[in-house]
């Protein structure tokens, strides 16, 4: 096709790329710097509260993978005692339907998202691994009661000009380093 004058369109595009050169970078150096994830993140581990769980099994019915194994026996009248509560995070698709369905708030999504494992068997989360610890915290997905303590999500929508809303970075001191750490 014919153009009256060549190069104007390309020059306009180049002007924009030149403008882009002076913009602050939006990317972060990932393993060293980390953005803060959403408060409602559906992380790759779940948190289970044994004292609140009644063993009703609603979560096992809600799971579309059939991934949650729950074994109970009858204890006192009208009470179940949970012998086994186990799920395979390698099979889980983290849809959050189990958390949504739990009527007693006994299950929550976790905050962790760097959950690569070295052995396949390590992906199976049993009662001990699902328990609440300092490293293993619940997220606010369907559990708004946990939202207050969590840090604010870093949003790219707010840039440095908006003041106070610049990228929240995860403090380096809290970082785990190296395999097996």
């Amino acid at each position: 096709m014919k153009f009256e004058r060549y190069g104007i369109g390309i020059a306009k595009g180049m002007a924009l790329t030149l403008k882009h050169l002076f913009r602050p970078p939006l990317t972060v150096q990932y393993p060293d710097e980390k953005l803060v994830v959403s408060k409602r993140i559906r992380g790759n581990e779940l948190v289970w509260f044994p004292d609140r769980c009644t063993g009703c099994g609603t979560c096992t019915k809600a799971c579309l993978q059939g991934n949650i194994i729950l074994v109970t026996h009858r204890g006192e009248p009208n009470k179940f005692i949970v012998d086994k509560f186990e799920l395979d995070s390698g099979r889980c698709i983290f849809c959050g339907l189990c958390v949504e369905s739990c009527p007693y708030d006994a299950l929550a999504m976790g905050l962790e998202y760097e959950c690569a494992k070295y052995r396949r068997g390590e992906t199976i989360l049993d009662k001990d691994k699902l328990k609440l610890t300092d490293q293993h915290q619940p997220s606010a997905y369907y559990r708004p009661q946990f939202a207050a303590g969590l840090p604010k999500q870093s949003l790219l929508i707010y840039d440095k000009k908006d003041g106070g809303q610049k990228l929240n970075l995860f403090p380096l001191s809290k970082r785990k380093r190296g395999p097996g750490a």
């Binding site: 994830v37 559906r42 999504m109 999500q153």
Partner: peptide, 17 residues
């Protein structure tokens, strides 16, 4: 930025459910 908004609402960035 859109993905950020979705993550804020439903917790994931690709498969929102």
């Amino acid at each position: 930025k859109i993905v950020d908004l979705c993550e804020m609402t439903c917790g994931q960035r690709l498969l929102f459910n």
